[in-house]
């Protein structure tokens, strides 16, 4: 079945056993929806570290298809413990992959795997335009929540 290229085992594993799921304390919370299908995610980011720029936790409550659920789980793996800047850079590469429509990217497969780890399993999803938004839902929420958390951190410092 061609679908196997979209529903990789890696994706189904993340879907069945999502990493980091559940809402915990955070510095900012956002709620994003995919209006075409009703997928929803509430996502919180907690910052920490010496400069307050490290993502200590991403917690989330979500409902949606296997692609959106697995994507949130992979996101959790990829960004927790990294700085906001690193996380957003990873998000940009994931976005690049999702917008590739199945075409070759300028990056080598090794480089992609290095950056995205399990996230490269989503390459097959890029061939299904209707599902790309599912894969990006949690990443868009992260971008929004992280920028809010950073802003709060700056306001706290300057206060």
């Amino acid at each position: 079945m061609k679908l196997d290229s979209m529903y990789q085992d890696v994706i189904l594993d993340h879907y069945r056993n999502p990493h980091g799921k559940g809402l915990r304390d955070g510095d900012a919370e956002v709620h994003h929806v995919n209006p075409t299908c009703g997928d929803e995610i509430t996502l919180r980011v907690r910052l920490g570290g010496a400069d307050g720029q490290t993502i200590e936790d991403v917690s989330y409550a979500s409902q949606g298809c296997s692609i959106s659920q697995a994507s949130a789980s992979v996101l959790n793996d990829l960004v927790v413990g990294h700085t906001v800047a690193e996380a957003l850079a990873t998000g940009d590469v994931f976005l690049e992959l999702m917008q590739s429509r199945g075409h070759e990217l300028d990056r080598s497969d090794e480089e992609l795997e290095e950056i995205l780890d399990d996230g490269i399993a989503f390459a097959g999803v890029a061939k299904y335009p209707a599902r790309v938004k599912c894969a990006l839902l949690s990443w868009m929420a992260l971008k929004d929540a992280a920028s809010q958390a950073v802003q709060k951190e700056q306001e706290r410092k300057s206060a």
């Binding site: 079945m1 061609k2 679908l3 979209m6 075409t36 299908c37 009703g38 997928d39 949606g64 298809c65 296997s66 692609i67 299904y128 599902r131 599912c134």
Partner: peptide
């Protein structure tokens, strides 16, 4: 199983159905 996943696997078998809230979210 989310309707998106249902619809995708059905499509693979040639069966076209609608998935989502059908532009009637209050019903859902």
């Amino acid at each position: 199983i989310h309707p998106h996943d249902v619809g995708q696997v059905l499509d693979e078998q040639g069966v076209a159905v609608r998935v989502g809230h059908h532009c009637a979210r209050p019903v859902c």
